[in-house]
């Protein structure tokens, strides 16, 4: 078991023949991901990386029975790509693209209400990996190891940092979900935590958040009510000033509730093993699992 993606996932790449799409599709295939084709409008019928290219996601799904799509198209077209994938019957859409206008995502979120069996992860995220089965995204595969810790994070490289600490302590991962750093994302921290709590293979969860919004505290309150597995939490941005956007469009402190300190306090009260230092994520998980 694992969540969202595994060795049986049939993955297509939207924006397949572009620079990013080509580079990361190659890496995903090398990792062993079952990539079955790709989509680039206007290039249908061609072969790229020894795989078929289609004009539309609909065509690709019909021809390859794909159920997972990873999106690398430029931000101006990414919302369109997500909606196209949903209508074509893709079950898990992982959108890597960064810089999608918020108003586009307001529409996408509303649009996806009509597709309850489709799950969007991202945008502006590193993707999802089930180690040694499927890498659907841009994370470095080699730092991961198969195991029992689930990871949920709004960040890219900070997730790699946490995963690396886990792996070096001998703690492998069930599935790592990069949910993305934008104000509107498909899968929230809480939804990702729920998936991992329901996964029998996952024994513990690392939850990495950031300043801005209320996703981590929403998840923390649910965890307090439903906790079955230990959760280690970290919130980046304890030293961030109010009102400034810290790189991620969603990482901005709006009020008193979405500071790192406020979130960490609530998480602690909800029984989460909160670490002050990102260097302690791995060992705290190890101790929590003892």
């Amino acid at each position: 078991m694992s969540v969202l993606v595994n060795k049986n996932s049939r993955v297509i790449v939207q924006g397949f023949t572009g620079g990013e799409g080509t580079f990361h599709a190659t890496q995903m295939i090398e990792y062993g991901t079952n990539v079955v084709g790709g989509v680039t409008p206007g290039k249908g019928g061609q072969t790229h990386l020894n795989l078929p290219v289609f004009n539309t996601v609909d065509e690709a799904v019909k021809a390859t029975k794909a159920d997972v799509s990873v999106i690398f198209v430029p931000p101006a077209y990414a919302a369109d790509g997500i909606m196209e994938a949903a209508t074509a019957g893709i079950k898990v859409i992982v959108c890597i693209s960064e810089g999608i206008p918020t108003s586009d995502m307001v529409k996408v979120k509303h649009f996806l209400d009509d597709y309850p069996n489709t799950r969007l992860v991202g945008p502006n995220c590193p993707g999802v990996i089930t180690p040694e089965e499927a890498k659907v995204g841009i994370m470095p595969g080699f730092i991961h190891k198969k195991g029992n810790v689930g990871v949920v994070s709004r960040s890219g490289t900070l997730t790699y940092e946490a995963v690396d600490q886990l792996t070096k302590l001998g703690l492998g991962q069930s599935t790592c979900i990069g949910i993305g750093g934008d104000p509107i994302i498909g899968t929230t921290t809480l939804e990702a935590v729920k998936l991992l709590m329901a996964d029998p293979e996952t024994k513990g969860i690392v939850m990495i958040g950031e300043i801005g919004g209320s996703m981590e505290t929403d998840a923390a309150r649910w965890i307090m009510e439903n906790e079955t597995k230990p959760v280690v939490g970290f919130i980046a941005g304890q030293t961030a000033p109010k009102g400034r956007r810290m790189g991620h469009a969603g990482a901005i402190i709006g009020g008193a509730d979405d500071t790192a300190a406020a979130k960490m306090k609530i998480m602690r009260e909800c029984g989460i093993h909160v670490v002050e230092s990102p260097a302690d994520i791995g060992k705290t998980m190890r101790d929590a699992l003892k």
Binding site: G156, T157, E210, Q238, M246
Partner: peptide, 14 residues
């Protein structure tokens, strides 16, 4: 990376 950058600021403070 933005998340790691914020985490690095936090490490400096700690």
């Amino acid at each position: 990376g933005a998340g790691l950058a914020m985490a690095t600021m936090d490490i400096i403070k700690l």
